[in-house]
Design a protein around this nucleic acid. Structure first.
Length: 481
DNA sequence: TTAGGGTTAG
């Protein structure tokens, strides 16, 4: 058409943009956009909306947002597209701000809008706002399968599984696999195993349901259920599914079964970046720093078909070095990831590297990283300041420690963990008056440190009790001991 | 002609 006709307009290009977005080939999409500009057909509302979606799917949030703000007039579809764009980039708070702007501009919502808003509420844990949207759904009288699914997902993520089940029970619309998968994932997430398994029995086992079941078992360190799900994965012939196998691997790793995790890893035929990173991290968490590094070298080697490490792999390798005290290796990889793979360290990478250096007494080198952060326009996060405070505690660096402590509390005054780090620092330098002062501040602000705990799972086979698994819990995270 | 719900690694 481009070669033979001269009457191309916005409506010709929008489906082409949709195709480009589906192909995830930015070069092609950029060419098409350039042609649209050249022909002057990039300004219509549908064209701009398709561009919001295209750039969002390419991971170019800035360009997606630009397309939105370049519009003279915006309809509800354009607003919906930009909400999805922010959600796709993991910015639910920003999506909720835009949702508020929609209300200010008196744009009438559609079901699409409410779905996205509910998703934003679920991932940012905006309980009250989500319930208000539920009320809007009721008032609109829309009982649709997609909207009901979004509501079930919202309540499940908030831990209100009974509210989620009530929506399912009082449904008058049709059901489908996505809704059942949402229910299954919600029940597992909230440890309603019986309900989850009985819903699973209503549908044919599918990879998504099994993956979410396994990720909930990882989260809850529930090896007993996790093993049974793994059995279903094998019996139903899903072992070729990489994403599902990654979830099996991670379940064993999170439950402390590193050997089993490694066996699953070896059997994944088409390993992706998540497979490699999960296994590297599993070794690192269990203190097998050398094994983590060996595996990373294998990832770089010939057997790996061009799967490149990303920023999560970067962090997994660094944290493996930190846990095993591998200072030289940590330093090597901190720079190698930037030079060889062009990955820009985020604050969490800096926090990890500062931790490595601090434990090794290299406080000067840790401090010397700050100018580099300023150059790269990276703002130190609370985790960075916490790492500095810990480094100063180990190295008895009073002056810098006090400075970092001040920054940390200013930036994140409600995180109990920060007060623990500060308290340990002041105790180490003998400032018991400050330790006391911190306790009073915590009391006054109502900040409570989470309790630590430990647990053992026992199973009874006839008269015999078998010890199955044990671990410790602190701040909601479970770790094998 | 553009927008929506469920799944894996930090």
């Amino acid at each position: 058409m481009h070669c033979t006709r001269t009457d191309l307009n916005s409506y010709t290009f929008t489906p082409v943009l949709t195709a480009c977005a589906a192909l995830l080939d930015p070069k092609r999409g950029h060419q098409v956009h350039a042609l649209m500009i050249k022909l002057g057909v990039d300004c219509e509302i549908v064209a701009k909306t398709a561009l919001i979606d295209l750039y969002s799917k390419y991971g170019q949030l800035g360009d997606s947002v630009s397309a939105f703000y370049e519009m003279r007039y915006r309809d509800v579809v354009a607003w919906n597209a930009i909400l999805s764009s922010y959600l796709r980039h993991g910015l639910p708070r920003k999506a909720l701000e835009l949702f508020a702007d929609m209300r200010k501009e008196r744009v009438e919502f559609s079901e699409f809008t409410l779905c996205s808003a509910l998703k934003a509420c679920a991932s940012s844990r905006a309980c009250q706002q989500g319930k208000q949207i539920h009320a809007v759904v009721i008032v609109m009288g829309r009982d649709l399968v997609v909207l009901s699914t979004a509501l079930i997902n919202f309540y499940s993520h908030l831990g209100q599984i009974d509210a989620a089940m009530k929506i399912y029970r009082t449904l008058s619309c049709r059901t489908d696999d996505v809704m059942f998968n949402t229910l299954i994932s919600g029940c597992f997430r909230n440890k309603r195993y019986d309900a989850a398994l009985s819903i699973m029995s209503l549908i044919r086992p599918n990879a998504v349901a099994l993956t979410s079941a396994l990720s909930a078992c990882s989260e809850n360190s529930d090896i007993w259920i996790g093993k049974q799900i793994h059995g279903v994965v094998i019996r139903q012939g899903f072992t070729h599914d990489t994403q599902l196998s990654n979830a099996v691997l991670d379940m064993y790793a999170k439950c402390g079964k590193i050997r089993e995790a490694s066996l699953v890893f070896d059997r994944i035929a088409r390993k992706d970046v998540v497979s490699w990173t999960s296994m590297i991290d599993a070794y690192g968490v269990h203190g097998y720093g050398a094994e983590a590094i060996d595996l990373f070298k294998r990832m770089e080697g010939k057997e790996n078909n061009d799967v490149l490490p990303n920023s999560v792999s970067f962090l997994a390798v660094l944290s493996a070095c930190a846990r095993s005290g591998l200072v030289e290796q940590g330093r090597k990889y901190f720079y190698m990831f930037q030079e060889k793979y062009g990955l820009v360290p985020a604050p969490e990478h800096y926090a990890c590297f500062i931790d490595i250096l601090g434990r090794a007494g290299q406080i000067e080198e840790a401090w010397s990283l700050f100018p580099g952060m300023v150059d790269k326009n990276i703002k130190p996060s609370p985790a960075v300041w916490a790492a500095v405070v810990n480094a100063c505690r180990i190295n008895l660096d009073v002056e810098r420690g006090e400075f970092a402590a001040k920054c940390l509390i200013q930036l994140e005054p409600n995180n109990p963990g920060n007060y623990v780090a500060l308290s340990n620092f002041f105790a180490a330098i003998g400032r018991w008056d400050s330790v006391d002062a911190l306790r009073s501040i915590m009391k006054r602000r109502g900040i409570m440190k989470g309790e630590g705990g430990s647990w053992v799972t026992m199973h009874k086979f006839g008269d015999k009790i078998q010890h199955e698994h044990s671990g410790t819990a602190s701040f909601g995270n479970l770790q094998e001991v």
